[in-house]
């Protein structure tokens, strides 16, 4: 993984300021914008994994993201927090272009992953989605066995050899801390797992295609407190190897997980700061109102 030039804390604060001012004051921001769409790779510093520039997302005429500008560093655990309708899920879906599948949506602005605009021409969307894994709000398993769920992605990538698949499945399940619970019943229908197990299976399914970024959309919303804690612990292990983006409406979860917190409201990025900062001294009144439970 890339060597960290700026320490996470500093960069987080700096970028929060940048986002709030709404002007790309840093040179890397300038690079992102000056480089026209489709210009291929550009010179983003190695520690920036995702660079979002003036991203707007529309469902028909409804503007669900209103010009988001934000950077996400390699091996960062970024929490996106906000009430429903704040654009959190839309943001995730615009990062892996899952929003493309919904009729009548449109996008403007840029999303650079490793410096390359994912909305540019010649982008292999399937490959992009493989690199940016996504875990959905409600645990949903494909109607097949535990093994086949995890092997689904690798198989679609053309991996057929049994031994290799076995290894990938085991590694993914181990990384999702599910292996010990299911290793004796990999052929069972995945629907028989508990909600918490199903959600970890969803994570294993994503890990099996060797993503670079993992996005989790309210991964614990349907789960009991113990399963929730297990998932949150798992996040800390994942961030060792992946860039992790967590979406939650729950300030307590954002505080527990740590890392940077970006607060979204009505399609706008209100502010972004490390959890320790944002929960003790929020700069924006709206953030304060939200974390103190005045709305949301």
């Amino acid at each position: 993984m890339g060597n960290k030039v700026i320490s996470p804390g500093e960069a987080g604060v700096a970028q929060a300021g940048q986002a709030q001012d709404g002007q790309p004051g840093f040179s890397r921001g300038m690079v992102g914008i000056s480089n026209a769409r489709g210009a291929g790779t550009n010179q983003a510093p190695p520690d920036i994994k995702v660079s979002i520039r003036e991203l707007r997302f529309y469902y028909g005429k409804l503007e669900a993201l209103k010009g988001i500008t934000m950077d996400i560093r390699k091996n960062e655990l970024l929490t996106i927090m906000g009430p429903s309708g704040s654009g959190k899920t839309t943001l995730l879906r615009s990062l892996n272009r899952l929003g493309d599948l919904i009729a009548g949506t449109s996008v403007s602005g840029q999303v650079l992953v490793d410096g390359k605009d994912i909305y540019g021409p010649g982008v292999d969307v399937a490959e992009l989605r493989r690199r940016i894994g996504m875990v959905f709000a409600l645990p949903v398993v494909l109607p097949m066995s535990i093994y086949d769920n995890v092997a689904y992605g690798p198989r679609k990538r053309g991996i057929k050899r049994r031994a290799l698949l076995d290894e990938i499945v085991e590694q993914a399940l181990r990384a999702a801390i599910l292996w010990d619970e299911v290793k004796d019943r990999l052929r069972d229908h995945a629907g028989r797992l508990s909600g918490g197990q199903q959600q970890r299976l969803s994570i294993a399914r994503v890990l099996a295609v060797q993503p670079e970024i993992i996005m989790l959309d309210e991964p614990t919303s349907g789960l009991d407190p113990i399963s929730t804690l297990r998932i949150e612990e798992l996040l800390h292990e994942l961030v060792e190897r992946y860039t992790v983006i967590l979406v939650t409406h729950n300030p307590l979860q954002a505080a527990r997980v740590g890392g940077d917190v970006a607060f979204f409201l009505l399609g706008e990025l209100v502010e972004r700061a490390p959890a320790g900062v944002i929960f003790t001294s929020p700069r924006d009144k709206r953030t304060e109102d939200y974390i103190t439970g005045k709305f949301g």
């Binding site: 892996n96 899952l98 599948l101 399937a126 490959e127 992009l128 989605r129 493989r130 690199r131 894994g133 996504m134 959905f136 409600l138 949903v140 494909l142 109607p143 097949m144 689904y152 992605g153 198989r155 679609k156 990538r157 969803s202 399914r205 994503v206 295609v209």
Partner: peptide
Amino acid sequence: PTAYREISYALGSTRWQTVTGAVLP
């Protein structure tokens, strides 16, 4: 369920792979 399609697409499957792997079964 739409979720089956989304899971498949989100794992990097193409449209046809999603049709044959997640939808038709």
